[in-house]
Design a protein around this nucleic acid. Structure first.
Lengths: 315, 315
DNA sequence: GTGAAAGCGCTAACAA
DNA sequence: TTGTTAGCGCTTTCAC
């Protein structure tokens, strides 16, 4: 029977009889038993911190494209609900590879376990310092510098930064890094920049609340850079509701270039990230990891500013 | 060893020695082998047609809440990439239950297979006629009637419907059904309504293109009802770019009440669906299905109109 | 070209 | 209380 399905030397008569039996008994192979025997499941796990953030959706689409091409199917998990109780759920056996999107301190234990488990691993690393694991990163530092240069060139002096922190690693956040560096590098004297960080995963609600704090705590801001688009949208809402005209009174720039950027009114200036590419490279890294073990590859992709309607000349 | 982990009668000394061995050898149980033996995987699969539509994200969150409570972990798949090659990937063994969101003709084969496989199944059914499988549905017909009543009351006469069709089942779409029925039930003579359907999954791009066709094909429209929020956002963008003021010249109403409804400018009037509830009920259905087999339960949840800024008096 | 048997890593049942 | 064994459903290998 085995041979009939998996391609072997079978005589036509036997093949026919087997096929008939399969049909009549409605036989379905048990994927689990097969995986146990062969050691491969043809499944890849992707653990995402927020499935409702379109940024990750797009990255996942990239992963899927490559995975499908190689006969893998992609299983998506939300890292917000994974805790140590599930420790073993993807360890030995279950997956032929794991992709971790934006791991934070909240799931560092998972990264650790995964790394020790010898399952091919790839991470989307957006916390500054180099990843100890195979990773894809985006060069956001220069992206953010572009943003600040753009705002400076439009006459903005007092610029706010709106970020989020899933845990406490704020200092290695490349966006904030770029933000600070841009001010240091600027050849003119500026009023100090203003930073407001909200705890969370970078949602619109957080952006709304964050904007409120930012503008309450710092007077005279004419521009805000938000560390992702969701925050930016939330901030724009707060600004609109509180009588600030965007972009005439306040410029807003986001990060990620999610699909809503072109839909919002005004459309959102943002940093474009090659999201599909990120996903594709991640999956390629897993594929590589399946051959050579213990390699640590790092891929860095570029980012660039896209100016839309939400940013313009300062008053 | 088994007993030490899974709670059995073990003497302290043995327990200690086993624990030590586990520690030093860094032993991790193989989830696959365990599942093969016990017949349960503690995993639930959820197959979603569009992970980038926030509507589904929210439903998934509801599923997750209940799943977690019962010790299951949720695996999410995008049905857009699943085809017959993956036929066996969730059949016997892999999952203790499967939830199918908005199955369409595109994956009717999957529903079929699943139903035959005796895996507890629950479907989110949004195509009108009653589901032959355990399902959660939303009473959209009355929701849509509310929308039309609202638009009528604001003086709108010529109203467009903007829908999408993943396959050809347009006639059982409850939104369209409600839309038509509202016109029939109306006690006054109205200009005929106008329907434009775009092929696809209900994205913003489709909404943009659909609006363009709608307004090209039908003159004098003063209101549009879109069968989901994404389409509505796309339509609003097209309207804005083509000089139509929303809501002063054209009212727009969406469906789903996704988070962006309150963020967009103008904010979007829409039909609210209890998304979390939908998810929770779906998972409950799976749980039920694990006990009694072959039961076919149907849960219907209500929907209601939320009026925001995008709809108002006709010119 | 085909049947049979071993064994993947686990748990449940049965002896001891 | 503990050690041992059979077997989940498959694939691989080795006889025939």
């Amino acid at each position: 029977m085995t041979r009939t399905l998996n391609g072997g030397y079978v005589s036509p008569s036997v093949r026919e009889r087997v096929m008939l039996a399969i049909e009549t008994l409605n036989y379905k192979p048990n994927a689990l038993a097969r995986a146990l025997r062969t050691g491969r499941t043809q499944q890849i796990a992707c653990i995402s911190p927020a499935i409702d953030n379109p940024f990750f959706s797009e990255v996942i689409r990239g992963i899927e494209e490559i995975a499908i091409d190689h006969g893998y199917i992609l299983s998506i998990y939300s890292s917000q609900v994974i805790d140590r109780r599930h420790e073993t759920f993807l360890l030995p056996g279950r997956y032929d590879g794991v992709i971790l999107l934006s791991p934070s301190e909240l799931n560092s234990w998972l990264v650790q376990e995964l790394a020790e488990s010898h399952i091919p691993l790839a991470t989307f690393w957006d916390w500054g310092s180099e990843s100890p694991y195979p990773s894809v990163a985006v060069d956001l530092v220069t992206g953010v510098e572009e943003v600040i240069a753009h705002l400076f060139s439009q006459g903005h002096q007092r610029i706010g930064y709106l970020g989020y922190l899933p845990s406490a690693e704020t200092d290695v956040n490349p966006r904030l890094l770029g933000f600070r560096r841009a001010f240091v590098n600027a050849d003119v004297d500026r009023a100090p920049y203003c930073v407001e960080l909200v705890a969370g995963f970078g949602t619109m609600e957080e952006g709304y609340a964050g904007a409120s704090r930012l503008f309450r705590n710092y007077a005279g801001l004419t521009a805000v850079f938000a560390s992702n688009d969701m925050l930016a949208f939330g901030a724009m809402k707060w600004l609109r509701e509180n009588g600030y005209d965007v972009p005439r009174q306040v410029s807003v720039v986001g990060c990620d270039d999610t699909p809503f950027c072109t839909m919002s009114n005004p459309s959102l200036s943002t940093i474009q990230i090659p999201k599909r590419d990120v996903g594709q490279q991640l999956m390629q890294l897993v594929l590589k990891g399946q051959r050579n073990t213990d390699l640590t590859v790092h891929v860095t992709l570029p980012s660039r500013l896209i100016v839309r309607e939400s940013s313009g000349p300062a008053l």
